[in-house]
Design a binder for these strands. Structure first.
Lengths: 158, 158
DNA sequence: GGATAACCGACCACTTCAGTAGGATTTAGG
DNA sequence: CCTAAATCCTACTGAAGTGGTCGGTTATCC
């Protein structure tokens, strides 16, 4: 499996917040119920998102989480990286701040690193897919936002 | 990390076999020495490649492994899948024989699966990168084949 | 009949995953 | 002021996967 459930749950959490745009902060328990995910596990995930500056939190009663930016500006590469850590196809791959790829056993034998070409292509494919998708798209795809009218607030179903 | 060293080592093993095209079978110990990888671990990996029909083996003294097909016909998606198992971005993703993608919690809530769009794109990116790369390319990239003339046979360096 | 090599399965230390548990702190509302 | 609701934090745990190692068996060439 390329990604673990951390990415899966975390992205769903983000989508859920994206659906509630502009309104009150959404509590984790509401998200947990809506997505049928364990609350205490979501706490760990949302902590990562918060540390990455993707969501903001309000403590105390009626508190919860909000997106730190409008969903159109949030690309999924940032989200997934916050959840899963640096995204590289292989252990030996490290991306420098300028976006260059380094392979740690570059030329450790008598010929060039045979796999670098492959992993570079894979890296490119994944990055392109993630960076080319915005949270707004996913919100739209999953049934659209709930913006002004409170048609189906997140905790209402059950 | 997207892939483990199983893919890394396994691909390098394949490249090493690809460099020895048409000649005698290559022993695992020769590959292990050339790539500085643990022999006994390579045994596990080559077993997967053999079961997938990518390499053929000759037992006994002077035995070893050969590619089952010319490297131009071997695409890396098959190789990596043989080594790592089914390549899917997420646990809930299962590809049917016809190439359709199924998501196990499709419509388990009141709205469509929010993440399917994303993982489908990622899946596409990875598959395209892997299937669009042939073993021959990697052999070329890593210094070319050794075909007729035995310029630098695999075990000769050290 | 060695030496060489593919084969096979068991085992092991270590890390990550997925989740639980328990508490501390902050805040709105009665 | 009290309490319920919520974030926040740390520690723990069982299960699985990773990256090997080891010992032994079988097959084959010289």
């Amino acid at each position: 499996m390329l990604f673990s459930t951390k990415a899966e749950y975390g992205v769903r959490l983000m989508v859920e917040l994206g659906r509630q745009r502009g309104s009150e902060p959404v509590s984790l328990s509401a998200v947990a119920e809506a997505e049928r995910l364990p609350l205490s596990y979501l706490e760990h995930l949302v902590a990562r998102l918060r540390k990455a500056g993707l969501v903001t939190s309000t403590r105390g009663a009626h508190g919860g989480y909000r997106l730190a930016m409008p969903p159109e500006e949030i690309t999924l590469d940032v989200v997934v990286e916050a959840l899963e850590g640096q995204i590289a196809p292989m252990e030996c791959f490290h991306e420098t701040p300028e976006g260059k790829v380094l392979c740690s056993h570059e030329s450790d034998g008598d010929h060039a690193c045979a796999t670098k070409l492959l992993w570079t292509r894979v890296q490119g494919g994944v990055t392109k897919a993630l960076a080319g998708t915005t949270l707004a798209e996913l919100v739209e795809f999953s049934g659209g936002t709930v913006a002004g009218e409170k048609a189906t607030p997140v905790g209402s179903a059950a």
